[in-house]
Design a protein around this nucleic acid. Structure first.
Ligand SMILES: NC(=O)c1ccc[n+]([C@@H]2O[C@H](COP(=O)([O-])OP(=O)(O)OC[C@H]3O[C@@H](n4cnc5c(N)ncnc54)[C@H](O)[C@@H]3O)[C@@H](O)[C@H]2O)c1
Ligand SMILES: NC(=O)c1ccc[n+]([C@@H]2O[C@H](COP(=O)([O-])OP(=O)(O)OC[C@H]3O[C@@H](n4cnc5c(N)ncnc54)[C@H](O)[C@@H]3O)[C@@H](O)[C@H]2O)c1
Lengths: 211, 211
DNA sequence: AAACCCTTGTGCAAACAATCACATAATAAA
DNA sequence: TTTATTATGTGATTGTTTGCACAAGGGTTT
């Protein structure tokens, strides 16, 4: 079980499997074969088995996987058997949608603090319960509330500076919604959620098709 | 120039280059070397050159790339030298943030129609100008407004059905925000914007680090 | 016009990822 | 107990992507 040599794409797929299994559990499906799970996630059946094989033997030959058991194991692998505490920075249009989204909480991700610099916003209380802090309070609040993950929803121009502040406050992992590539020091992680890149992909394929 | 064998990761990076170049243009930088551009986008310099080499020779040896010229070429490759007309389906929390986001328009992506099934929403006018249509009107509106791209922001349970309706209305490309894997027929494209998968990645890495 | 930068464009090898194909093991039926 | 059936786990294979290293070529200086 050498964690270092696990393909990063495997982790992404585990997340998909987890979601599919959650759905199957709702539907009271007890057992699932790699074929069916693969189909549900749009991947190759052998891929599913190999992905899982990195971490152990979870299936029964001739039978398949027990949904509940496999889900439990995948969640353990991904670290979803606990709650993750997030801070949102920048409560604009997108930020509001994010904190209002109750699915995150269901999956174990919780916005426990919200920050902005706009004096008209700071101090206000959100419908979802959080009070908006000023960025000056970031270092103490991050420490007090034991925040694990920082979420950047500021304008692009402020994103790099915001990342620096989050890191200085002791945060190791960042989810970035701003359309810029954020430079992170060694040992810190950033994941970008990049709407425009996805649209550009669609545009490219539509353009090619037409040729 | 065999389009079929171009790595999909290359297209994604072209999108990043395009954005970086746009920024450089704002700063009145005329010439950029692959080193600098690579650093800005967090990739290897050889990667930049190789990505571009798939489509032609855009640089000048010993000098670098002319920012304006390269940007123009990349935009042409990606199909960003035109406007793309999008339909949004599901105007909830996320949908509202999307239509309010004026960056899309600046980049050539425009929400020209918005759909929902909620009778309380249908017929209302959005601050961004669009009137909310009922889903029943999808087929005619898609045709009349010549829509290229469908954007799904409905609950996950409705996403697959929505995709089917979009396809039946003649749409070839879909951007999906719902946390499900959508099954598409041959020749159609879907791109998923998947917040939770990204968070799961962060959770996994944080969990590993701690070991 | 020669010598010297500098940075591109690219052949090639290495690393990484996906897929095939089958031995293996569990279960059910005969 | 034997045979048939089924679907996992995995070695081998194929395919894809990345990165090194350097020849090629444009520009500049002497
Ligand atoms: N809205 C969308 O649908 C959408 C889509 C794609 C990408 N994005 C990106 O997400 C980010 C946020 O988008 P938005 O539409 O919510 O923008 P917005 O302008 O509505 O909100 C930005 C918020 O950040 C705050 N802010 C500004 N500087 C700050 C700083 N230094 N520290 C803390 N807070 C700061 C502002 O006060 C504001 O409340 C942008 O980078 C945008 O490009 C948004
Ligand atoms: N809000 C977020 O930050 C966020 C984050 C990640 C993912 N998502 C996903 O994006 C999607 C939308 O999220 P949201 O927060 O805006 O949800 P929401 O409940 O606020 O909005 C959903 C909208 O879709 C409409 N709708 C429902 N069924 C429909 C149908 N069949 N056809 C057309 N419209 C229909 C509803 O009337 C509503 O207006 C969900 O799938 C959600 O999981 C949202």
């Amino acid at each position: 079980m050498k964690f270092s040599k696990i393909p990063s794409a495997t982790i992404t797929r585990l997340s998909l499997y987890s979601r599919a299994l959650e759905e199957l559990l709702q539907e009271h499906v007890n057992i699932i074969a790699s074929d069916k799970l693969a189909q549900k996630c749009g991947v190759n059946p052998a891929q599913v088995r190999k992905d899982l094989a990195y971490f152990g033997e979870f299936g029964v030959r001739g039978v398949g996987y027990f949904v509940k058991e496999l889900l439990f194991e995948i969640k353990k692998i991904l670290g979803l058997n606990r709650r993750w505490r997030m801070a949102l920075v920048g409560i604009g249009n997108l930020g509001l949608a994010l904190v209002a989204h109750d699915n995150f909480v269901k999956q174990g991700y919780e916005f426990v603090a919200v920050f902005d610099v706009d004096p008209k916003k700071v101090g206000r209380r959100l419908p979802s319960g959080q009070t908006i802090y000023h960025m000056d309070e970031l270092p103490t609040v991050v420490k007090d509330k034991k925040i694990d993950i920082g979420v950047i929803a500021t304008p692009a121009s402020q994103a790099q500076a915001t990342a620096r502040l989050l890191i200085e406050a002791g945060i190791k992992a960042i989810l970035n919604f701003a359309p810029v590539q954020i430079q992170m020091p060694e040992g810190y992680i950033v994941e970008n959620v990049d709407f425009t890149v996805k649209l550009d992909n669609l545009a490219y394929h539509l353009t090619m098709e037409a040729v």
